[in-house]
Simulated scan of single mutants.
Amino acid sequence: MGRITTRQKVVRITAADGQDVEFVRRFDTLAAEEPLEIRVGGAPLTVTMRTPGHDVELAAGFLVSEGVITGSDQFASAIHCGGPGTGGTIRETGTGGVPLGIYALGASAADGGNTYNVLDVTLAPGTPLPDPARARHSYTTSACGVCGAASIEQVATTSAFDVSGDPLQVEPSLLAALPGALRDRQEVFEKTGGLHAAALCDAATGELLVVREDVGRHNAVDKVVGWAVLNGRLPLTGIVLQVSGRASFELVQKAVMAGIPMLSAVSAPSSLAVEMAEKTGLTLVGFVRGASMNVYSRPDRIRTDVLEPV
């Protein structure tokens, strides 16, 4: 189902001070980036540039971010659209029989058949289809996560979940450990150095429930949210969303839409991300590096009773 990495010929140049310049021809491993068209009921909704893999999760998470669905009972199935010569289908189920999707069996891209870059989602009976006016006729790049709502007020009123009332309490030591735990499970990043990652952490146990990587930071978040959809885990109460990069407005939006009360980022948040976190009652933590971190909103969820007085 697509390629996660590719191999590319490069010239490696080493130019150390006082030494001759060295040229070495070698292969380098790159993170794959391919388009995925997401359709709902056969109608195109969006095209996003992503790293192939976990496409059904990506679509399910995207639909949560867009406010199209709010739980696994509204997501019936998904099929990779095949061309001529496509075979049958495979149905997979998750926890409690929740469908993980229906996948078309097709020929390889080399045979001119299915390239698995079009995914058609079927919603459960009674679930309203997306407004056709929201369909994107241009693609979303892997660097851009503008996914739906145009303002903080719209997101705050659209989300089916109120994260402000989540009684989550987290020790600072748990948050400090999350970036390292996430990094240890970034298998593709280890090979390419070119992928973002997101993880869902159970704050009560400290367990990383799921880790996903993608060339786009918003896609990585959609994939972990989609995992939650397919396993009947929404809303994600008591969960910390850990991301490997910065905290943008779009990532705060996705967390709120999935009912996640806390977002922790290795790097900086944007001003709009902080504003939205304050508006919705999400705890936003940034610059989580070593033993230090900055808490930008709802610091009451960080257990200060375990800290030494400043």
Rank of each mutant, 00 (worst) to 15 (best):
T93P: 00
V68T: 14
C147Y: 11
Q74I: 08
T95C: 00
A291I: 07
M257I: 12
V240N: 04
V40I: 11
V163R: 07
Q253F: 04
A107L: 13
A291Q: 11
S292T: 11
D55W: 02
K223F: 06
S77W: 00
L129R: 15
E34T: 09
R134K: 15
L307M: 15
V47F: 01
E34I: 01
P235I: 10
E34A: 15
L175W: 02
E66W: 04
R26F: 00
V306F: 00
V98T: 10
G206S: 05
E33H: 02
D300M: 03
P172K: 06
T205L: 11
P132L: 12
D305N: 10
R50H: 02
G106R: 07
C144V: 15
T86S: 15
Q169H: 06
F75V: 03
L230V: 07
A203C: 08
R25W: 07
S297L: 04
L282R: 04
R303Y: 01
S72E: 05
V64H: 05
Q74T: 12
E57N: 15
V10I: 14
G286D: 14
L36S: 10
A220D: 01
V40F: 03
A255D: 05
N231Y: 14
H54L: 13
V295C: 12
I102G: 07
E22H: 10
I69H: 04
E250P: 00
L58G: 03
E275F: 00
F27R: 13
A220I: 01
S248V: 01
A149R: 06
R12E: 15
P132M: 11
A255Q: 07
T158H: 11
L284M: 13
R50K: 06
D17T: 12
A110M: 12
L282N: 01
F287C: 06
Q154M: 14
V211L: 05
E22V: 15
M262L: 08
G87W: 04
E37Y: 01
R289K: 10
P269Y: 07
A160S: 15
S151L: 08
G71T: 05
L58H: 03
G18K: 08
G94T: 03
G206Y: 04
G67H: 09
L119F: 05
S65K: 01
I38M: 12
I152P: 03
I90D: 06
T51K: 11
R185S: 13
V10C: 02
I302K: 01
F161A: 03
R246I: 05
L200H: 05
M257A: 09
M257C: 10
E187I: 11
Q242G: 08
G53D: 05
L241P: 02
V266S: 11
E34G: 04
G238R: 02
T93V: 13
G113T: 13
S244C: 05
V310C: 06
T5R: 11
G245C: 09
M257Y: 05
V224Q: 08
R25Y: 11
A277P: 07
G281V: 03
T122Y: 09
D73G: 02
K279C: 10
G2S: 13
M276P: 06
R246G: 14
L241W: 01
V155D: 08
S271Q: 05
A16D: 10
